[in-house]
């Protein structure tokens, strides 16, 4: 199966969001998206997997399978879970190198950065940082 590149996935999200012109619809989308995401197994909700800097609790689990990094994430706040889910859908299933070198422009393009409070934006940033760190760490292995 041909997998889509990180940028193709980003462009799809940007396209999806371009249909919405007010925050209401954007958040409805995020909330609905968040609801469809699977829950992370309790065993992965460890302190080690916690992302700090978010007001809600966020966990990120990463595994290396057949040369690809598989991310799973969860949050107890649904909007956060939606955003985190977008990041996972873009980055998961790619090689460590692709992840480490990715440029995540979709966040800005769909207007999330601007709409999120500083605390949340920090959470988002630490999440991205952590995902990239996994990319770098898995490359080294």
């Amino acid at each position: 199966m041909e997998t889509k590149s990180i940028n193709e996935l980003q462009d799809e999200i940007v396209e999806d969001f371009s249909m919405y012109d007010d925050w209401n619809d954007k958040y409805e989308y995020l909330i609905e998206f968040g609801k469809t995401l699977p829950k992370l197994d309790e065993e992965y909700k460890t302190d080690e997997n916690r992302i700090h800097g978010c007001q809600s609790r966020v966990w990120l689990n990463a595994q290396m399978i057949d040369g690809k990094v598989i991310f799973e994430a969860d949050s107890d706040a649904i909007i956060t879970k939606g955003i985190v889910g977008l990041l996972v859908s873009v980055l998961s299933g790619h090689t460590p190198k692709e992840i480490a070198e990715s440029d995540l422009y979709f966040i800005g393009k769909i207007g999330l950065q601007e709409h999120l409070s500083p605390t949340r934006a920090n959470g988002l940033l630490s999440m991205i940082k952590k995902m990239k760190t996994y990319g770098i760490a898995f490359q080294a292995k």
Partner: peptide, 13 residues
């Protein structure tokens, strides 16, 4: 059943 943060985001908007 709703996280306070989610409520805060919606009210903020």
């Amino acid at each position: 059943g709703i996280h306070p943060y989610d409520v805060g985001v919606i009210l903020d908007n």
